[in-house]
Design a protein around this nucleic acid. Structure first.
Lengths: 95, 95
DNA sequence: TAGATGATTAGATAAATTTCTAAATATTGC
DNA sequence: GCAATATTTAGAAATTTATCTAATCATCTA
């Protein structure tokens, strides 16, 4: 996981909304974009950022491109945050 | 938690490094900055961003200002990410 | 009170980001 | 092959961000 790419990707509200839309299953680019007041080109840029962070996977299906959530990266990110918690100095070194 | 502020704050590598430095306990601005190749002014900007996100708390101690980690926001953020996991459609609606 | 030290604020600049329009690419179906 | 549809790429404009220097504010100590 390229930490920087993932945090950068998560820093934009539109991209977080895209991920949320993908929670319930894969969607085509058009289906995702339908609810955003933004051009398809801008959407496509956001998809590229999410792909670079490996937060989404793509699969072409005929004319369409289907996006799906890659939750393992979300999991890694959550773990990383938890690892930032203050280490209560118990014997055995920093947890 | 202002989601946007928190994600924005986490998107910068210097700020993440600052948080990491605070894992083992509070530090003054100067102590934190000592390991970064950056001016005190720039550091101060980063502190402001972290404070706005409520990721750090400050306390003046004489000449110094002591920064400490506010882990509850990290916890909230981790939970938020976990809640983005695909909802395996079990009876009872989305988890 | 002055000088020194720690830290923030103000203002400027360079780089990155978001968004747009227009053009290009991929695929379907006639 | 051509037109229509779905999506991405290219290039430009506006905004935001990270950084710097210089100036200011707060506190300590002599």
């Amino acid at each position: 996981m390229r930490q920087q790419d993932v945090f950068k990707a998560m820093a934009d509200p539109t991209r977080r909304a895209i991920l949320k839309r993908l929670q319930d299953g894969p969607l085509t680019a058009g289906e995702i974009g339908a609810v955003f007041d933004i051009t398809a080109a801008s959407l496509s840029h956001h998809f590229a950022v999410l792909k670079r962070a490996d937060l989404v996977r793509t699969e072409r299906r005929g004319q369409y491109i289907v996006y799906s959530l890659n939750s393992t990266v979300l999991e890694d990110l959550a773990r990383l945050l938890i690892d930032l918690f203050p280490s209560r100095e118990r014997a055995g070194g920093k947890s």
